[in-house]
């Protein structure tokens, strides 16, 4: 998770021009870092490329919009990184 977080934090910092030190595992991408949906697609593109996965962003967004899942589940970075690790593990299993 820690190396996943370092990679994701670096991507967010570079993509959204956010100082790296402001990005922590507890950061909420939307509420704390101010990342909008368009910028998150940029992040997803870089994450997909870096980890060789496909973040199911549309599914996550739908679940959040329909109240089936709290946004924190996907957009707090430590949770996002755990999901990335899960997708990577599923790919290599």
């Amino acid at each position: 998770m820690s190396s996943t977080f370092e990679t994701v934090a670096g991507i967010i910092s570079e993509t959204c021009d956010i100082p790296r030190e402001k990005i922590t595992p507890a950061s909420h991408a939307i509420d704390d870092l101010g990342i909008d949906s368009l910028a998150f697609l940029d992040i997803a593109f870089a994450v997909d490329k870096a980890f060789g996965i496909k973040l199911p962003l549309e599914q996550w967004t739908q679940e959040v919009n329909e109240g089936k899942a709290p946004a924190e589940q996907y957009f707090v970075l430590e949770n996002l990184c755990a999901r990335i690790d899960g997708l990577v593990a599923a790919k290599t299993a």
């Binding site: 697609l41 997803a44 593109f45 997909d48 496909k54 973040l55 199911p56 962003l57 599914q59 967004t61």
Partner: peptide
């Protein structure tokens, strides 16, 4: 080049 979720490249 990429068929992502919610985006394409």
């Amino acid at each position: 080049t990429v068929e992502g979720s919610g985006y394409a490249a």
